[in-house]
Computed example of a mutant assay.
Amino acid sequence: ERYPLSLNAVNVVCFKIDWDERGLKVLLIKRNITPQKNKWSLPGGFVNVDETVEDAALRKFVEETGIAPSYLSQVRTYSDSKRDIRDVGKYKVRVVTTSFIGVYTFDKDPVLTEESSDYEWFKIPRKYIQRSIPELAFDHEQILTDASNRLRRNLEFSGLATRFLPDYFTLGQIQDVYETIWEVELDPANFRDKLTNVDGWIREVKNPPEDLKARRGKPPTWYKEYDVPQFERMISNPDGAVIREKESEYQKNLDNMTSEIPVIKLEELE
Rank of each mutant, 00 (worst) to 15 (best):
V95W: 01
A57L: 05
I17S: 00
L28V: 00
L171K: 12
V53S: 07
V228Y: 13
F138V: 05
L171Q: 07
L7Y: 08
N190V: 14
V111K: 12
K206A: 13
S117R: 06
L28Y: 01
A9W: 05
D187Q: 14
Y3D: 14
R83S: 12
D187H: 14
L5A: 13
N197D: 14
W121N: 02
R192D: 15
W182P: 00
D227A: 14
V96G: 09
I33T: 06
Y128N: 08
A214E: 10
L72A: 05
V49D: 02
P209N: 14
T34A: 07
E1M: 15
K127A: 09
E120V: 10
V96R: 07
E63P: 02
V88W: 02
R244I: 03
L28F: 06
V26I: 03
D55Y: 03
L155K: 02
E135C: 03
L24R: 00
V75R: 01
G159I: 02
G89D: 12
A56T: 05
N11A: 08
N11T: 02
R31F: 05
E245L: 13
I202N: 09
P125I: 07
R76N: 07
N8G: 13
I129P: 01
V242N: 08
R152Q: 03
P166Q: 11
Y71N: 09
L212Y: 11
I129R: 02
G44H: 00
Q173V: 01
